[in-house]
Write a protein that binds this DNA or RNA. Structure first.
Length: 240
DNA sequence: TTCCGGTCAT
DNA sequence: ATGACCGGAA
């Protein structure tokens, strides 16, 4: 029966198999990332709270807006709407005015609708279940993972542009990163140290924003140097 | 002027 | 799979 034997669980059309994450690679990446984060992690306002509502507001703002622009609006928004109940009661037109000028103005509408639904159907408590979170308009896979890890301390994976870039460079280094999201989601999940989803996810995003940057990453001071499949990153070959 | 980005819709 | 959304940055 040799001809009928199947190679163990592999997608029929892709040839490259998952990037063989060895236990040693995994452990080193985790330890170095968390150590780096302890020394260099940013002190962001939404890391000082455990209120799921505050975390949600920050994550929706951060969906397409940079940290520096979000910070002042985060404070202003929460001053005006300190809870799901306050936000749910507010006219959506006011919420949109408060949102200005962050842009992508569907976001305040969706945030408002999430608040209404949370008050009406969940007694003002944001659910921690992935399926329920994903059922809200405005919460996609990234934000659901962010809420679960940052607001509920679950070991839930996240994958945004920072995480895609970091994981692809360190562990894959071939092909178009955006075309490999399925593998990268698996990596993001497999790498989380048990019980440390919050710190690990915050850490990998800081790392992507501060060291493993899109252009001109700081490879010389990078703690992943010795395990990174892309080191040393050649900026010239990456520019057009 | 072009590129980028989470989510949703096509 | 691809584009709309909207504004910032290269």
């Amino acid at each position: 029966m040799p001809s009928s034997s199947k190679s163990p669980r592999r997608k029929t059309r892709s040839k490259a198999q998952s990037p063989a994450l060895t236990p040693s690679q995994k452990r080193r990446f985790q330890q170095r990332l968390l150590k780096w984060y302890g020394e260099h992690g940013r002190d962001l306002p939404w890391r000082k709270t455990s209120d799921p509502y505050h975390i949600l507001v920050s994550e929706v703002m951060l969906q397409q807006t940079q940290v520096d622009r979000v910070i002042p609006k985060y404070h202003e928004f929460l001053d005006r709407y300190p809870s799901f109940e306050h936000l749910a009661e507010a006219p959506v037109a006011d919420v949109k005015k408060t949102w200005y000028p962050l842009g992508y103005n569907i976001r305040p509408e969706r945030l408002h609708s999430i608040a209404c639904e949370t008050v009406e159907r969940y007694g003002g408590q944001l659910p921690n279940d992935a399926e329920e979170l994903l059922s809200f308009k405005g919460i996609g896979r990234y934000t659901a993972g962010a809420i679960r890890s940052f607001a509920f301390n679950e070991d839930a994976p996240i994958l945004d542009t920072n995480v895609i870039r970091v994981l692809h460079r360190v562990f894959i280094a071939e092909g178009d990163p955006k075309a490999q999201k399925a593998q990268l989601w698996e990596l993001s999940e497999a790498l989380i140290p048990r019980g440390k989803g919050y710190d690990f996810n915050q850490a990998i995003m800081d790392f992507g924003a501060m060291v493993c940057t899109a252009r001109d990453p700081y490879c010389l001071l990078c703690p992943m140097k010795s395990i990174c499949k892309t080191y040393p990153f050649d900026a010239a070959s990456n520019r057009k």
